[in-house]
Simulated assay, not measured.
Amino acid sequence: MAKVTIKMPEDFLLRVSRLNEKTDEIIPRVLKAGGEIVLDKIKSNLDSAVGRDTKYPSRSTGQLAASLGLSPVLQDRDGNHNIKIGFSEPRRDGDSNAKIANIIEYGRSGQPAKPFLKPAKSTGRQPCIEAMKAKLDEEVNKI
């Protein structure tokens, strides 16, 4: 029976082992880089949607846009790391930011829909992936 031995370059093996040790430090930074790209898209879409095409002057207070933000990177029970973009609660008037965002996104009786989340998801996908790849390459090169 034939026997084959393949030796990897020593510096490559050292970098891979260091990458394994620093995974818990690198993943949150990579996810945050991608999340910030999508967050910027959502904020710009929200700013353009609020107060547009209304019968009456806008009564926007800016609370919805100010409450938009990123969650910390958390790990679920399956071992997957997640970052979420959402609205903090509550508003000063006691209403829910999620409800207001839903009304803007999907509309209601007498108020047309002004989607800002779905377009941000579709247009932000590729730039988000590219930003995360670039951040991962940067982190790996630091090792």
Rank of each mutant, 00 (worst) to 15 (best):
V30A: 08
D47G: 12
G62R: 01
M1W: 00
E89S: 04
D95V: 04
P119A: 04
E105C: 09
L64T: 14
I83H: 09
L117N: 00
D11F: 08
I27L: 14
N141M: 12
R125E: 13
E25W: 02
I100V: 15
L64N: 14
K55F: 09
N80I: 06
G62V: 04
T23M: 08
L70Y: 06
G124Q: 06
A33D: 01
L19M: 13
P28T: 05
E105P: 03
G94P: 10
V30L: 07
Q75H: 00
E21T: 13
L31M: 12
L31A: 10
G35M: 01
R52G: 02
P90W: 07
E89R: 04
N102M: 12
D76N: 15
L74M: 11
K41T: 02
D47F: 05
A49M: 04
Q63M: 07
V4G: 02
N20H: 06
K133C: 01
E138N: 09
N80P: 00
S71K: 05
R59Q: 14
D24A: 07
I104M: 10
D78P: 00
G35S: 07
D47Q: 14
L74G: 06
G107E: 11
L31W: 01
K41R: 09
T5G: 01
S96E: 10
L136P: 06
A49T: 08
I42Q: 11
V50H: 01
I103T: 14
P115M: 08
P112G: 03
A101Q: 08
R91Y: 15
N45Y: 07
S88G: 13
A66G: 12
G94F: 09
G110K: 13
L46K: 08
D78M: 12
V73R: 02
T123I: 12
E138C: 00
L14P: 01
I104D: 11
L68V: 08
E130F: 10
P112R: 03
G51W: 04
A131Y: 02
P9K: 13
K84A: 13
I37K: 13
G34W: 08
N20L: 11
R91P: 02
K99Q: 11
G62Y: 07
T54W: 04
D137P: 01
D76T: 05
A49K: 02
E36S: 14
H81K: 10
T61N: 02
V73N: 10
S88Q: 14
M8D: 06
R77V: 15
I6W: 13
G86C: 05
L14W: 03
P9H: 06
K135T: 03
G107P: 05
D40R: 13
K114W: 07
S88L: 05
A120D: 06
S71Y: 03
L68M: 07
G94N: 09
Y106S: 03
N82Q: 12
R125T: 03
I26S: 13
T23E: 09
G86T: 02
S67E: 11
E139Y: 06
T23G: 07
R77M: 11
M8N: 00
I42D: 06
D93K: 07
